[in-house]
Structures are given as C-alpha cells and as structure tokens.
Design a protein around this nucleic acid. Sequence first.
RNA 1: GCCGGGGUGGCGGAACGGUAGACGCGGCGGCCUCAAAAGCCGCUGUCCGCAAGGGCGUGCGGGUUCGAUUCCCGCCCCCGGCACCA
Length: 817
Amino acid sequence: MAHEEKDGYDPSAVENKWQRLWDERGTNVFTREELESAEDPYYNLMMFPYPSAEGLHVGNIYAFTGADVHGRYHRLRGKTVFEPMGFDAFGIHSENFALKIGTHPMDLIPSNVANFTRQLRRIGGMFDWNHVVDTTHPSYYKWTQWIFLQFFKAGLAERKEAPVNWCPSCMTVLANEQVIGGACERCGTPVEQRRIAQWFFKITKYAQRLLDNLETIDWSPTTIKAQSNWLGRSTGAQLRFPVVDADGNETGDVVEVYTTRPDTVFGATYMVLSPEHPLVETVTDDGLRVPVYAYVDAAGKKDLVARQKADKTKTGVPTGGYCRNPATGEVIPIWVADYVLMEYGTGAIMAVPGHDERDFEFAQQFELPIRRVVAGPEHDADTPLEEAYVGPGSLVNSAAFDGTNVSESVETVTAWAAEQGWGEAKVNFRLHDWCISRQRYWGPPIPIVYCESCGPVGVPESDLPVELPRIDDFRPDDSGISPLARVEEWYRTECPECGAAARRETDVSDTFLDSGWYFIRYPSADVDDAPFDPAITKKWLPVNTYIGGNEHAVLHLLYSRFITMVLSDLGHIDFEEPYDVFRAHGLIIRDGAKMSKSKGNVIVPDPIIEEFGADAFRTYLMFLGPFEEGGDYRAGGIQGPFGFLHRLWDSAVGATDDPADPDVERKVHQTIHQVTEQIPALGYNTSIAAMMECLNVIRAGGRSASRAEIEPLVVMVAPFAPHLAEEIWERFGHQGSIFDGDNWPAYDESKAVETTVEVAIQVNGKRRAAIQVAADAPEASVVAAARVDENIARYLADVEERRVIYVPGRLVNFVVG
RNA sequence: GCCGGGGUGGCGGAACGGUAGACGCGGCGGCCUCAAAAGCCGCUGUCCGCAAGGGCGUGCGGGUUCGAUUCCCGCCCCCGGCACCA
C-alpha cells in the first residue's frame, strides 16, 4: 500500500512540489544581469489579463497555456525565454464593478490581482514574477503619462472639440472601436453624439505606414485582414463643386466631395451634405431654414443610434441651395441627409444615383433625376435603370469620355478634372484619430495643466507621476466632466511655465494607452528612472511571438503598433513594429457559444485542477482542438489526457534499463519528428495525439517501457505537463530543471525509417486489398506482388489493363476498363 | 450586404491530390479488485452477408483527375467581425 502511494501519480503532490521548487530556485525569473547577458533571447508574450473579480476562466487559461507551451518548447530547445505576466487593471470595467459592489477600485484591484496571481501560479505558467506589470501602479502609469507627453511634444496629441460617442449609461466617451452597431460595447446602451473637448492621438497620420508594414510582419492572416479593413484605404478623387446662387452665379463657396468613382461625375445629379457639414447654414435658402435646421437638430440628437440601425430608409431635406456640376455645367440641388457621414471623406458627396445603391434609393424616394453614365454589356446609353448599376462597362452620356472603359476612366477623368482645376486624385482612410480622453476616475490622469496665459502645458517629466488621488466619490455623472473635476484640492495647481494659478486636466486616459506599450515595460519592469532600459530593450525587443485573442485585432494591436512607430520615430527605440510574429488563438466554445460570463456558460477551472491537476487540464485544453481555431469544451474530455499522463507516469516510473526495442524506437523517432515540427506551428492537438500513439506502442501488450524509449517522450510532453516532466526528469537522476539547457530529443532519421510498408492496392481508384512489402522494394516487384493478390486477381481477370499507377510506399492503382 | 473561418461517425477532432475517420471522449463486452479509482484486453461510420467480401458514405449540385475531405465553378447552412465609408 505504502509502495503504491509512493509511486502512483499524484498530480497535486507533484505540482505543489515543483511550483515550490521553481520559486525557490528562481527557475523562471531573471535578474537584470541575466536579462542583459542572455545569449539566445526569446521574448514570448501573451496578452495580459484584466483582473476581474470572478477570477480566471477557462478561456483565459486556454490562451495562456497555449502561449506557455510555446515558450516552454523554445526553452527546451535551449533558448533563453522571457515570459512575463501582468495586469491590465485600469478601466471602466473595474470601476463599474467597484461601483456595483460598493467598494473602491484601489481596494478591489489588489485583491483581484492576488487571486489571479494565485490561479496563474497554479496552472504552472513559466511566468517571470520578478517582472510583473500592473498598469494601475504609479510606477507604471508614471511612464504611461510620459508617453502621453512625448506625443504631446511631438504634436501628435491634440485637444479639440469633436463629436464623440457618448455612452449615457457608462457616462463616458467611447472610441469608435468601442461602439458596436450604435451601442456601447460594454453595456449595450445606445450611444449618443456629444461635442466635448477631447485629447486625440493623430493615428491617421500613420495610416499608410500602418497599412504598408502589414506586409513585413508575420501575423495570422485573419488579423492582418481585419487591420487592413479597419484602416480602410480607398483611392479616388477629391472634386470641387462650386456653389451657385439662384441666377447661376458662383458664390465663392465650394462643396468639396470625396468619391471613389470620379468617372461617374457626369451622372452626379444632386449633392448631399451631412447634417454636421459647416456649409449647411451657408447654402440653405432662407425660406427653408426651419425644416433644414429641424432636420439637422434631429440628426444630431439621435445620430449614431438611429444612423446605425439596420433600418436604412433614407431621410433628407432640400436646402434650396445649388452647385454647378463642373463636368456637365448643370446646376444641381444640394440636399442634407444623414446617410452622409461627417466623419468620412469630406462629409459631403456628389450623388450619382445611377451607379450608387444609396444614392439610387434616395433619388427614388425624393424623385431626383437618375442618369445612366455607365453601360454594361447588355445596355446602351438609354437603357432605363431599375437599380443602381455598379458593374463593369463603358461610359455613356459623358461627353468626350463616352466609350471609355470604366477600368481606365477613373484615372482619365481625374486627370481631366485636375487639368481644369476642380479636382485631384486622393487616397482616403476609414481610420479616425484616436480619442484617448475618458471622463472617468479609474485611469491615469492626463498630465496636462491648463493655464490662462500659456494654454495647455505638459506636466514636467520630473513631476511625474500625476498621481490619481484616492477619492470616495468616484461616481461618474452626466455632466461630461470627470469625477476628478469635483476635487478642487487636486486639480488646483500652478502653471509649470509661468507659475500662475492653473488647473489640471481632469480626464484620464483610455486603457488602450496602458496596454499600448506594456510589452516594452516588461523587461524593464524593475527600472524606476526610465520607462525602459535602452540596453535591455535592444536585446529583448521586438517581441518574438505574441499570442492573443483576435478580439483585439483592431484595438489593442493597432494602437500598440502605432505607439511603437511613434516611439521609434522619436528615437526612443530602434524598431517600429512591436511583434515579429502574432498568432490569434481560437475560442473555447461551450453549448454552441463562446465561453463568457454574459452567456452564462463559464467553467470555473479551480475544481477541475483540484481533481485532475494542472498538467492534465493544460494537456486537455491543448488537445481539444487546433489551438488557432479553438474548440468545444466538454466536461468528460479531460479523462483522455488524464489517463495518458497517468500511463506515461506509470511507464516512466517503472522503466527498465534495457536497450530500446528497435520497433518501439522507430515509433519514438517518428514521434520526435512530428512533434518537433508541429509544436512551433501551434499544432498542439496533433502533437499530443502523436505522443499518445507513441505511448500506446511503448505499452502495447502490457510491455514495460525502457528508459531509452520513454525519456524522449517525457521531454516532449514537458511543455504541456511541466510538473510531471520535472518530477520524472528528477527521478531519472538528472540535476536541475528539465527546462534548463537544451534537452529536446534529437531526431535521428535513420532510426525512424520503416523496413516494411503496407501498400494499398486499388482497382480504378477503389481499395481492394493491401500487401506488405519491403520499404525499398522496386516498383516492378510491388506491382507483381499486387497482381497476384487473390482479390486483385479476380478484378483483373477479364478486363483490359490500361494503366498502372504506382505511388511508392503508398499504393498501386490498376486502371482497367 | 461586405470581409474572415467553418460544415467529416453518437461527440471533440485526424488526414503532402494517394488506404477517410489518426488520437481521444462516449458506448458495449471482458480482466484485475472485498469494493472503488487508476490500469489492462477486445469491439464500435452505415447497410447487406455466417464469412470471404461487397454497396453507400466528408453540407448540396456540377467539373478536373487513374484517384477529390483536399483543386475549380455554382449554391445552402453555421460561427466570428465590419457595416449607409461615398
């Protein structure tokens, strides 16, 4: 009995032991000197969590484990792997939760962090606990503020009054990226439009570079595509339509429009301004001011909500003003309609109802003229339009351009407009500047002081951090002003430039600014006189591999690229892309839906780890599907990997010193080959399957393993089940951690070669038999052997043989007929 | 509507254009045990057949090929993202 207990697999004993030893020996942590002198550095990054009160859920653990497996693999191959962990703990989510349960974020977050830390240790991640980053700690946000100041000094941070997305429930401004279908991504409340003075980062200046660089980085294609769509580059032309009075004389005002189809300018039969367009007032006829202003007013109120509803019924009003179409010379009416958005292009369009679906619908509704200027192969110049025609064809009703193919006409018409001075080619992006102001409490104060005479002044770097004061009343209100604006003793200060009485900025910054640079901070987390140490940064960055969720494809990943680019331009770092490789992991699905608290299908990991151990849990999560695609979580599924580890343990603990059996050794080397190829490619599920198969061979017929057979398997399983691997490694008599040094098994091709192979015999592509032949048997002898197979002979008896296909080692196919 | 990713046994999932269903879960039968856990052995796509063997099978319809889950064309459905972006 006692003997049983000593040698039986007891996950919690093994895991406790090794987690303790890793801590005691500092297995996973680096000193500054070690970071400085690392020989083969590999920076393995995963997206840091928001430390919620609920603790880690299976989705988090899935992502972390997948990334940890990657890091551990590279470490077993002899690399020096830095794998840090941190907490993205500022933001509305924490603040709202604190409000809900009646506590203070400054009390809530440390206890959440402690709980997360406990859980993260328990799953056996290879985290460097000496380099933890907590974005809410003054030692971190001091440097977040420093980054703001660098942007400010470089003219890349700008304060402007702008229409912003306002969530009436969260009572704060949201970035465009945080508005989903017109509603707040966090609480689902319809978003309103407000005009508030905000700080913006000029990310649009970097749009082209952010797009171009996508070609140079090795990222998941889905993420690349999402970023590229989000940047939304389009090419076209900016055209100017002069405003004319009732007599057709030019007033001097010009409506500037952006279009991707300048070739259809001859079909522009009216103009549309967005309700917020500055020219609305100017062009509106006095007799129409009442309806126009009423429309503009209504649009402003409902704005983002109503505009982004699925209902796309067009509304609009005529202004009574007119433009001259510079191509045709015709006078055309100017309308105001909310289907034209102020945020895109120039906020005004030329409407070509014949060849744009939205314009067509609008023109139909308000009985505006619809003119064909493109004729497809089925049409002529006068074919009536039943709907907007957007297909290929050639221009008609377009004066000198008639007959030109649309594929070339964009260019020729633009050139003509340029020659005449009313337009030029233009590239446009969908991307907007990044609004970083938040009228909330739980974030880093924006380090700006407003002075009557000096204007907005950056807080001197020596005065950082601008500490977030602990205040009891941190509730937001509907005024659009931060809770900090209620704390006079905090916001009253002196102008850093002239010393006059001044007032601090009371907004805090967006959490995406916190997470936009944390990866640069990690290796320098213990440096307190600079945001990052130059030498260490040079050695460790950019990040080798970043693994995270694709929900951040256009938020965090775009902002962190932008910040990196700016820091590079400002000379602080010498790389402009933060992550060499990015891989998006899949999602854990349960009951047909993504595992999430709102869906109510979350699995709490702790009891599972308690029962089966972290190793089995990790292995199961990596086994349940391709890591980059996610998979279905099923409660009983862990039995398979648990049993596997159990058998592996039993075989290893009872291993003999006999030499390896050649047949088993062959399987072992085939497995080494496969696993070595698949793990770095994140093919975790098939790697585990291969190792299971290998163990099945080792144990076939109840045979005992020899140590030579099983030791390579133990090393290969170590990324998935690190505690178990360490324990067996130690029992095999090795000194120190299995993760110290290059312990990955070497693949020997000569040992993996099969001597005999099974060859399938097909007749007309259908498998009719299989024969065993020597692996190096010549074609003729294989075909001859195939021919005399009893079953095959029957099929070949009375038919003509037309062809024989031979695929070495695989099959022989007799084509008969 | 647009952009991604998918549709394979009861289930999760494997398959360089080459033996479809590896590996695992679940199920059935058996061994070990006082019992349980763990472990071990066998069977397990479906239909016909005692068997040998054969028919049918990777969402649907076509095509290319000696051979298609894989490539091409046209559909259907599911998941994720974006959405009046001119």
